Amino acid sequence: MEQLATFGAGCFWGVEALFAEQQGVTSTTVGYMGGHTPRVTYNDICQGDTGHAEVVQICFNDSVITYSQLLQLFWQNHNPTTPNQQGPDFGTQYRSVVFYHDQSQQQQAVEMRQTLNNMGLFKAPVITIIEAANQYHLAEDYHQQYLLKRGKASCSL
């Protein structure tokens, strides 16, 4: 069955590339979620006052890849212990966040975050925000499949 997942883990270009290559992921788009303004652009979120995060929205076939597997990839491929920072990128738009689409996703995310903290896999507590998905704003076309369009597998730092 086709489902939706939405994650914020820093700059959305690399996050999208990671999820797009997974078997069972049928499509990905990048955009903005979690803010308080009804309309938003990339330039707006770069100002840091709209409250939006850069996110990747993932359509996936849960008979091929589960939401739990997507969560594991999410936490393994960014630093979920830093507020509003991933690598060289700073600002609320780069926060670590899971936007859940139903109660099952919420429960899985909360339980997995707790398990990660209990296991002590990170040098600091996992502070990933887990909140209900709200209005998704599709990012400008030039951001979609940004790395793929440029023949790159990842962002260079």
Rank of each mutant, 00 (worst) to 15 (best):
G10P: 00
A139C: 09
P88I: 15
D62C: 13
G31F: 00
Y142F: 07
Q22W: 12
Q135Y: 00
M119K: 14
F12S: 00
H137F: 13
G51F: 03
T66D: 10
M112A: 03
G34F: 09
Y146E: 03
L73P: 02
N43C: 06
Q23V: 12
R113Y: 15
Q3S: 02
I65D: 02
D62T: 01
F90H: 14
V15A: 07
Y42N: 01
H101D: 13
A20G: 15
S154V: 11
S68Q: 12
G151T: 12
G24D: 14
V110C: 03
L138M: 08
K149W: 03
A5L: 01
Q144W: 10
H52N: 04
M33R: 05
V97Y: 04
E21Q: 14
A133L: 06
T28W: 08
D141N: 13
V56C: 09
G31Y: 06
I129T: 08
L4M: 08
E111L: 03
C46M: 00
P38D: 13
D102M: 05
R95V: 12
P125N: 07
Q144S: 07
A53R: 00
V55N: 06
L70P: 08
H143L: 01
T66A: 10
Y67V: 05
G87F: 08
S63H: 11
F60T: 10
V126K: 06
